[in-house]
């Protein structure tokens, strides 16, 4: 039991370091920045309760905010993602999901891809929308959301393929 928590904590710290030191500095064409830290939330066991998941999301987001001087921004969007993860999983997967870690193997390729796409799009839309906070530059914001999401989704699926 204990080693599950140690692995989770290691994943948590790894996600923060990767995001803060490497990914936050990537901005292809000034638009696309991958926010891969949510991979940690997406991969948590489906048996983890919604409340616990939200706390993970909150502290993950808060720590990333602390490093990028955007208090509350990532935390707000990560909590939202944690909140809707269960319904999104249920929406796509017909199977009972009690003690399953989401992945290609456990969910099936199609279901997992749909799950990742919806979750990432939602998270990025909220995050980047909150950051801009005004909709004066609609096309720019949409382009940013779409490109960043695309980048994140590709990275997440690639990592998933490698780990399989």
């Amino acid at each position: 039991m204990a080693h599950v928590y140690i692995r989770r904590l290691a994943g948590f710290i790894g996600a923060v370091l990767l995001q803060v030191f490497i990914l936050n500095h990537i901005h292809i064409a000034g638009y696309a920045t991958p926010y891969l830290y949510i991979y940690f939330l997406l991969k948590l066991n489906a048996g983890v309760s919604r409340n616990v998941l939200m706390f993970w999301g909150f502290f993950l987001g808060l720590l990333i905010d602390m490093f990028s001087s955007t208090p509350g921004l990532n935390a707000a969007s990560a909590v939202l993602l944690a909140f809707v993860r269960q319904p999104v999983l249920r929406l796509f997967s017909p199977k009972e999901l009690d003690n399953v870690t989401p992945g290609f193997g456990s969910l099936g390729t199609g279901v997992f891809v749909k799950y990742v796409v919806v979750a990432v799009l939602l998270h990025h839309a909220v995050l980047l929308g909150l950051e801009a906070f005004s909709f004066f530059d609609w096309p720019g914001l949409l382009l940013k959301i779409v490109l960043s999401s695309l980048f994140s989704i590709i990275c997440i699926l690639a990592i998933e393929c490698l780990r399989r």
Binding site: M54, F58, T70, P71, G72, A75, A76, L80, L130
Partner: peptide, 19 residues
């Protein structure tokens, strides 16, 4: 969960706007 969700989001937004 709804209540916890709202609490956490309110906390986030307070941080965001008071910054």
């Amino acid at each position: 969960s709804w209540i916890l969700f709202l609490l956490l989001e309110v906390a986030c937004f307070m941080l965001l706007f008071r910054f």
